[in-house]
Design a protein around this nucleic acid. Structure first.
Lengths: 190, 190, 190, 190
DNA sequence: ACCTCCGGGACCTCCCGTTGGT
DNA sequence: ACCAACGGGAGGTCCCGGAGGT
C-alpha cells in the first residue's frame, strides 16, 4: 500500500535536493532517494527532471510569504522592512549555503531551460509588483520622496537581496544580508 | 609543429562556453570544439574540467578592470561611478544572457567545488576592497557621509550589481542594470 | 521482459573473461560482450568492475569442490589425494592457459585492490583449513608422521599446487601439475 | 648534458614499478617518473612498454644468483638449500608484497604477450636446469634416493617456491616461504 | 640522443528515461 | 498507480605512442 502521496514526496525531496545541489548536479536518483520513492515511479508523475524542477520553482515562488506586506497597523515602509527582514531570516534559517532556489535556477538555467527561466522571471515580477505596490502607498503618504520610480526601486531591492543572498552563499556568512537590510532601510529609504 | 598555444585556446574557448552554459551543462567536448583543439589534448594541459574552470575564474577575476577607480581628475565618487558604468556596459556588451562568470560559478558551484568557491569569494573580496578604498577617500573628503561603513557599502554595491546582472540575465533586458546605476548614484551616494 | 537474469549472465561472462585475460586486461566491453548483455546494464548490477571481480572471486572460491575430502570409505591421505587429483583435472579441463582465478587475482591485484586481495587470502585460508583437517585425521591415524604440522603442510600443498598451476600456464603443458601430484603423494606423504 | 645512461635509468625505474604494480597497472608515465627521465625519451630506447618489460624480465632472470649452487665445500643438497634460503631472504628483503617479477609477469601476461611469456618460461627452465644439475650430483653421491627424477624435482621445488612467494604476497607474511624451506629440506630431501 | 607538446582512441562510469508486469 | 530491471548513449578521464624541433 503506497504512501499518501508520491507526487508530493517527490516535490518535497526535489526541492531539498535542487536547493542544495542545483539542477544539473542533482540526479534523478538523488531525488528519488531523498523522496524515498522508487525510481520507476518518477515518470508517472513528471515528464522529466525539468518539469519537476518547474513545479519546484512554482511552489517555491508561491511560498514566498507576502503577508507582511499587508500587515495592518504598520506604515508602508515598515511593512516592506518587515517583509525583507523575514526574508533574510528565512534565508539564514534554510541555510546560507542553499541560497534562493529562484535565484539559483535563474542563474544556472537561463540558457538551458526556457520554461524554467520564464517561471523564474514571472516569480520575480510578481514579487516585485507586490513590493512596488506598498512602496507606492509609501510615496502617496509622503513616507518616501514623491519622485521615486517605485517599480524600479522594488526591482532594485529584490535584486540587491538576491545579490546579497548569492554572496552569502559563497562567503558562508550572513553579513551581506545584514548589510543589505541596514543600507536599504537606513540609507536608501531614509 | 603545433598551434601557437593550445592551452591558451582552451582557456579562451572554455571561458566562452562556461560563460554561456555554466559549468555542469558544458561538456569537455563542447569546450574542445569551441577551442578548436582535439579532445585528447585536453588533459595534457589541465587535470580536470574543474581545474580549467578554476583557471577561467581566476583570469576573469583579474580581467576586471579597476583602472577607472584610479582615474586622475575625478572625484572619488565619480570614479566609483565610472567604474560601475563601465562594468554595466561590459556586461551588456558581453551579452546579458551570459551574466558574470564569477556570480554564475559562485551560485552553481558553491556546494560542488570548494576550490572554485574559494576563488570566487576571494575575487569578490579583492574587488570589494578596491571599491571600499575609493569610498574611504570619498568619506575623508566629505563627499559621502562621515558615518558610513565604506567596506559594507562597497560590498552592498557589488552584491547589488551582481543581483542586477543575474536579474538582467533571466529577464533578457538591461533595465535592472540601469536601475542599479540610477538608484545607487542618485539616491544612495547622494 | 528482460532475460532471466542479467546479473547471472554478467557473472558468468566475467568469470570467463577474467579467467582468460586477467583483471586489468579485461575491459567492461569485453565482459558485456561475453555475457551478451548491453553495456548500459552493467552498472545496474555492479558498482564497478572491481566489485564484479570480487563477486567472481567469491563464487570461484565457493565452487572449489571439497566433497572429495569427505568421501566415505577412503583413508584420509587417499581423500586428500583424490581432492588434488580432481583439482588438477579441473585445471587441465578448464584450460591450462587460464590458471586459477584466485591465484591470478592474488598476483595481479595484491597492490591494487584491498578487497579482492582479502577475498583471495580468505579463500586460500578456508581451503587450507579444510585440507589440514583431513591431514590431522591422517596424523591421528598414523597415516602420516606424528610430528608434522598439518596446517603448515596443507598450506605448502596448496602453494605448490598454485605454483604448478602458474607454471603450467606459462609453459603450456600439464607436466608441472603431474609432478606436483607425483612428488607430493609418493615422496612427501610417503 | 644528459644523464649517464637514460636507458639504464629506464630499466631500473621500470623494474621497480613493474615489480610493485604489475604490467597493466603501470603506465608509461609512472615509469618515466620513477626513472626520472622525460616522457619523450622513452621511445628512443624502447619500441613499446612491452619491449621494456621484456628487457626487465630478462635482466631479472639473469640476476637470479646461482653461485650458491656451486659453492665449494658444501654437499649438493646443502648447496641447493643455501640457494633457496638465499632466494627466500631476497624475496623478503625486496618486500613480500612485490613477489617475483617472473612469476608475476607469467601469471599476468600469459594470454597477452607471447614474447614475455616465452622469456619467463625460458628463465624458469634455465633456473630449473641449474638446480637439477646439482640434484643430479646429489643423486650420484647417494645424498638423495637413486630413483628420483631430478629434473621433475627441481621443477617442483621452483614451482613450490613461486607458489609460496605468491601466497606470501597476498597474505602479507613470510610464513609460506618458511614452510616451503622447512618442508622441502626436512621432509622431502630427507 | 633528447624532449616538449600533442592526439586518436578507448576506458570506466553514470545518467535519464523506458519497459512491461502487477 | 506503482515499481524493478533495464539500456542507449554520452560524460570525464587517461593512456600509449608520435611528431618535429634542438
Amino acid at each position: 500500500m503506497p504512501q499518501i502521496n508520491l507526487k508530493e514526496q517527490l516535490v518535497e525531496g526535489a526541492t531539498d535536493v535542487f536547493h542544495r545541489q542545483g539542477f544539473n548536479a542533482s540526479t534523478v536518483d538523488d531525488i528519488v532517494r531523498a523522496a524515498g520513492v522508487p525510481k520507476g515511479s518518477f515518470y508517472n508523475h513528471f515528464d522529466s527532471k525539468e518539469s519537476l524542477a518547474l513545479e519546484v520553482a512554482k511552489r517555491y515562488a508561491s511560498s514566498t510569504p507576502t503577508d507582511m506586506l499587508a500587515m495592518p497597523g504598520l506604515s508602508p515602509v515598515a511593512r516592506v522592512r518587515a517583509h525583507f527582514e523575514f526574508m533574510v531570516e528565512r534565508t539564514v534559517r534554510q541555510g546560507l549555503e542553499r541560497g534562493c532556489i529562484l535565484g539559483n535556477f535563474g542563474t544556472e538555467l537561463a540558457a538551458q531551460s526556457a520554461v524554467i527561466s520564464r517561471a523564474v522571471r514571472d516569480a520575480f515580477d510578481v514579487w516585485s509588483s507586490g513590493v512596488a505596490m506598498v512602496l507606492e502607498e509609501a510615496r502617496e503618504l509622503g513616507e518616501i520622496a514623491a519622485d521615486v520610480d517605485t517599480q524600479a526601486l522594488a526591482d532594485f531591492m529584490i535584486d540587491s537581496f538576491e545579490g546579497a543572498t548569492a554572496r552569502a552563499k559563497v562567503s558562508g556568512n550572513r553579513k551581506p544580508l545584514d548589510h543589505f537590510l541596514e543600507i536599504t532601510f537606513t540609507k536608501l529609504l531614509r
